[in-house]
Structures are given as C-alpha cells and as structure tokens.
Write a protein that binds this DNA or RNA. Sequence first.
DNA 1: TAACCGTGGAG
DNA 2: TCTCCAAGGTT
Length: 361
Amino acid sequence: MLRGENSIGPDEAARVEAAREALLGWYAASARALPWRARGTTAWATWVSEVMLQQTRVETVLPYFARFMERFPTPRHMAEASEAEVLGQWAGIGYYRRARFLHAGAKAVCERHGGEVPRGVEALRALDGVGEYTAGAIASIAFGERAALVDGNVERVLTRVFAIEGDPKSSAVKKHLWALAAGFADHPDAGAVNQSLMELGATVCAPTAPRCLTCPVRSMCRAAQEGEPERYPEKAPRKAPRDEDWTALLGLYQGRALLVQSALGRWEGMLVPVMVPGAVDPASLAGRAGAHAVMDHGVVVHVLTHARMRLRVFSATLDEAPTEGTLVSMDALAGLAVPKVTLRVLSAVRSSGDAAPRRRR
DNA sequence: TAACCGTGGAG
DNA sequence: TCTCCAAGGTT
C-alpha cells in the first residue's frame, strides 16, 4: 500500500498497536510523578508546563512551574499581570519569547474563549507560541483528544523502533513520524499514550547509551535488533556559534545600576546593561550616556545557541538620575526581567572594582 | 528551508 | 574543558 500523506501501512499499524499496549503498561507502572501530572491539573497548567518544557529540562522547569502556578493559577491571572512581571517570573530559563507568547496567549484566551483554554488542536494552534507539538500535547493530555504529537523524544523512539532512516527534520521523515504518532494517538487514552512515548524517550530511550535492557518495546524495536540503536535518529552536524564582540557599559547612580529594555530579538523586553555591538570606545559611550569615571571590568563570555558573545565590560558613574531605563539595586533582582547575561555583567562589575582587567592565570 | 531564539546539566 | 542537547516555535 502506498503510504499517503497521513496514513501508515498495515504492517506499521500492527506494530504501532503492539508497541502502544506495551508502553501503556510500562507507563502506568513507571511514570515519574511530576507536578503537572498531579490529579486535578488544569488545561492551563498543562499549557504552562508544555511551554516551559520546550527545549528545557524537567529539573530546570520544576521550580519555575511551581512559582508560575502559584502566581498565575489561571489564564486570567496572567492576562491581568504586566508583561514585565511575567518576564520577571520567567527570568533565568531562557527563550524569553515563550513568556511573551504565553502572556499574549493568556490574554487571547480571556478575550476569545471566556478565560478557558480552548479544546481542539486547531483552536490551540491559533494561540501564540503553540505549535503542532504543544497543541497536540494540550489537546491529548488536558482534554483526552486523540491528537498526535512529535517532540524530540518521540522522534527518537519512533525512528529507533521503526528504523527510520533519513534526516528527521526533512519533510518526508516528519510526515512519516507524524503519521505514526497519529496511529499511536488513535486511542481512548491518547494523553497517556503520548506521555508514555515521551517518557520512554526521556528515561530509557536516551540519545546516548539507551537502556535497551529495561525497555518495554525492546522486542519490537528494529534499531535494537540491528544492535546499534544510537544510529537513529540521524543527526545533522551542528554549526558552531559565531563569535560576537560587544561593549557593555553599566551606568551607576547612587549605588544602583542602570538597566534598559533590550531591543534585540534576543532578550527582547528584558532588562540589560547598555550594550553595543563591536569594540567601542567606552569614553565616548559614557559621554553619550552622560557618565564619567569609566572603569574597565574585563571580558565576560556568554555562550548562546547561535553565538558566543564576548563582552568587554565597563562601568561609569552617571552624572544625573537617568530619565530612561530602570535603576536596580545589585542585590535585589528577584522578580525582575533579568537574563543571565545581565547577571554576568553585574557580577563582573561588582567583583572587579579596579580599573585593570583581571586575568585568571 | 534555515536561521534564530537561552540556559545549564551530563558525559 | 568541551560537546551535545532538552516535552519547539516563529520568521
């Protein structure tokens, strides 16, 4: 049979069914107890957890999730909060656009859906920051809909179990994976099915050194039979982050530091020191900012996914109270929308009071 | 399609 | 120290 756009062959369908049953049994016995899986979890909590978990480890998410649900127990609580506060609560886990999307999504839900998270992949998909994966996750986990999902875990599990060659990012392989996932999700408890696939990928079918000996679907896994499970999924070589030179000038005024809202896509809306690309003369930078007494605090390196930022850090005393930006006390940053790079710069300024850049051996 | 968006933990 | 990469989404 020709494999259509969203269908799988009879052989694969049979294997999907067998794997699903094995996974469900395993999941019922072995699932980690995570807060967003607790009884009484709302669709909103599922949404928040799914967004936080995008490209972010469970252990990292745990404290943030707890804080968010405490502060924003419903979409309305978040919709009524300022973006600055939402970003402040998000500060530290990165990919800050997620927080702005979540805030926008909460507002949209209040305006369009009476404050209730909508059902159905299509309505969910219409929310900012909710893509195919997240829509499928909310629909299946929160509402029990037979919605498929494919994340990095599912991709790994399925490419191994079905020995799927090719770049998993290619549209052909993606279609195949989503078709298989749809087969898995065609079940009365699609939420558990989907979570079992992800849980297996997270705890057993690991990227390296998969624990095949304890795997519930080992007997039906092609990659395990071939003896080289790590061969799947094929991974494209990563590009090295480019090097970027920046000059940061931290304005100081009466013991506090001047931060401004970043206009970069990176950290958009977050509070950062004045930063300009390139190696800029700090004296002229200070002059423009109305500051004097420039001090050199050496170089801070901040590595991101696509760039390695090398920041030459200076501080200077502001002549007058700034009219723009926010003056922050260096030890009262909790709840402020401050990314790690800001903390690094503040730390560099605080720890090197002298003008000479300090070098570690 | 490919580039872009943060951070920290594991090996 | 360094590489990999984690429950992705948008442009």
